[in-house]
Write a protein that binds this DNA or RNA. Structure first.
Lengths: 224, 224
DNA sequence: TTGTCGGCCGATCGCCGACAA
DNA sequence: TTGTCGGCGATCGGCCGACAA
């Protein structure tokens, strides 16, 4: 998944450490978020509630079915590796974020109901979508938006009603039904510097948890 | 699955051996019908194309998704077990079949198309469905039919048109879509002696094969 | 500014008899 | 006897402005 799109979908509160940076691994926290079993025995964890690890690899991924983004990280409990000095802060993803604008909205019942469209907040229309021709009556355009899998979706974007407001109509229902979105879920619209549009989703219901694929490697921790 | 219903769904050509009867196991035939791997090496099969086995256990099952019926059998290559004499023929299932009447029909395009009902062959209506009140105009009734999982389906059974014919209308489309039936598939209607109605399906497309769950146990064949 | 509602129009679903194989 | 077709009425999806929060 495009790191820019991934970051926008995950939200500003989510922080992904850079490769070679140092992090604390909390087995207990891992176990709480994950549906699969985590070995918490002292022989594996060393009896400590957390251990300092080096981030060996990070993959930004998206669930094929739910579109939920998650990160797969490999951790190495044998700390030293970077040649010298302090580990560089994870500047890569942070810098790239500046290249895109994103806007998230929690779906109202009217947004998620069948037979309805999507009320586009003014800021989202102005900052993310291409400018409409406000001379036309009504102002309307077709948007082509890619999801995290690269699948393209068409939305009719219209500015109408009294008072005027931005709406997504044709194509929106198909998207909602296909992604199985319900009121309370969120959609994220992203515009990259190139002008390309992307859309991601966040769900309210706990499904898998963003850490389900974090793999801890005790066999690296205690080499024979 | 009710043996009676299972038998009707499988059809009259399908023969399930009784427990303790003797059968020939053909590893090659097993491999051809099954999607999973079968070990054909001489060390397991003894180099013979087939081997005489005793049927240890038989389970009559139905696929949760497709409704296809299949049998799971356990075979023992060490033949003798029944006290003496010839193994009794599998009379059990054959006798029970007499307690039910069933009728199978291959779905025509009109039966499977959306927007259509189901043309009920005269014999099926007369022999399986409860008698209609032919004094009514039109003669019509509601049928409650259970599938192999015990789920109940409602069908409107009406006798109309010129010339008159039996049809299933309301409820039929829902059933076809839910079971993902297409023209060429078959439906089987079964009436037990109690009057209860059941419905099963047979599919044309090769999906899993009826022998997918036949397990051969070589570890029993050559005990250490 | 934007969430919800009722109106309304068009598309689709699905019931019907006609007709022919 | 029964498979297929065109007709057509009912239902539903979905676009609209009105209105109020």
């Amino acid at each position: 998944v495009d790191p820019l799109v991934w970051k926008a979908c995950a939200g500003s509160c989510v922080h992904v450490p850079a490769v070679d940076s140092l992090v604390y691994y909390f087995p207990q926290g891992h176990a709480e978020q994950v549906s699969t079993a985590v070995d918490l025995s002292p022989s594996v964890c060393g009896g400590k509630p957390c251990s300092l690890c080096r981030v060996v690899a990070v993959q930004l991924l998206a669930n094929q079915e739910t579109d939920e983004v998650y990160a797969k990280m490999e951790l190495d409990p044998r700390i030293p590796h970077p040649a010298a000095g302090a580990p560089h802060p994870d500047a890569g993803s942070a810098a790239e974020v500046g290249g895109a604008v994103s806007f998230a909205k929690v779906l109202t019942p009217s947004d998620a109901n069948n037979g309805g469209g999507f009320s586009v907040p003014r800021f989202c229309a102005d900052a993310i979508f291409p400018a409409l021709d406000y001379g036309a009556e009504p102002p309307v355009q077709n948007l082509v938006v890619s999801d995290v899998h690269g699948v393209e979706w068409d939305f009719r974007h219209i500015y109408r009603g009294t008072p005027r407001r931005h709406l997504l109509t044709t194509g929106w229902s198909k998207f909602v039904n296909s992604k199985k979105l319900v009121a309370g879920d969120s959609v994220v619209f992203i515009k990259k510097r190139t002008g390309e549009l992307f859309v991601g989703v966040r769900r309210t219901g706990r499904s898998a948890g963003p850490l389900d694929f974090l793999h801890y490697s005790p066999q690296i921790a205690s080499p024979a």
